[in-house]
Amino acid sequence: MRVTVIGAGVAGLTCALELAERGVAVEILERSAQLGASACSWFAGGMLAPRCELESCDPLIARLGAESIPWWQGRFAGTVVNGTLVVAHGRDAADLAQFAARTGHFQPLAADAIAGLEPDLAGRFSQGLYFRDEGHLDPRAALAALAARLGELGVAIRFGVEAPPTRPAGRQVIDCTGLAARGQLTDLRGVKGEMLLLRLREVSFSRPVRLLHPRTPVYVVPRPDGLFMVGATMIESDQGTRISARSMLELLSAAYALHPAFGEAEIVEIGTGVRAAFADNLPRLRGHGETLYVNGLYRHGFLIAPALARRAAEVTLHGSHFPEVMDANPRQRRLA
């Protein structure tokens, strides 16, 4: 069997790797000229936080996410499993209580324990939650590592190639093109996200830190070389043009509220992307003829892509059925 994967974002690369590791001949078509140039994966936070997502998401996301962490550990050396720290200022204690009530598998922390985990936050927060089993990675390094691994397995990524209008005969196609598949998947919508990359040497974190706030919750993910990713907004929009002044103010103010040293940080990059989502914000594997669409990963690309890729490979090779992510599931059809 020969398979063409369209799209070299995190969904496409994980699908291609799952198939290549099973000995399938795979090629990848990517319309942009280089890795990440048109993928919202490029602007992802890279948090592998299945427990925290339970706060507002279907338990399915937590299950797919928990399954994906070992996958990343086995394939990308930069995967860090060092937990997530969730904090809130005293006057937002109600937000922390609600977060705790909806998640679970955390350790409640007092001020000294927070300082023990993240010394640079000493004295700044009196309450927090520690989700020990969660991880994070640098999405750009992770995409590059997947591409390199695919190269070792003889899989080429053909950049600057649009998907052919008719499917090549005798080839299975896996379409991982996100919002660009909207012509075929008419129930997709765009959810814009905005993020900042800041550089700051005075502060270091060992794990992602989420600061809860009733209006502008924010997360800060440490990256190598003194970089911090600050994200991310969620705006119902399919135009990922530029960041708005308000979003920038909110992200920067939240980072400053987490630690005033962020006021001195260098703004290295401002990024925006549009995530593709279905109405229930849950992912789908949807077959149309010879094409299998893997889409609707919403803000959970790196978190759930490996688990979806595994299922996509099973569907492609063996015609398997996974009701939790396929439309035959009556619950999802009702929600859609």
């Binding site: 919508r189 119902e236 929009s237």
Partner: peptide, 16 residues
């Protein structure tokens, strides 16, 4: 204002 950040940008959400 908060949902779309623009006039024609939130078509997916508006249609829902």
């Amino acid at each position: 204002r908060r949902e779309s950040g623009g006039e024609r940008a939130g078509q997916g959400f508006w249609s829902i």
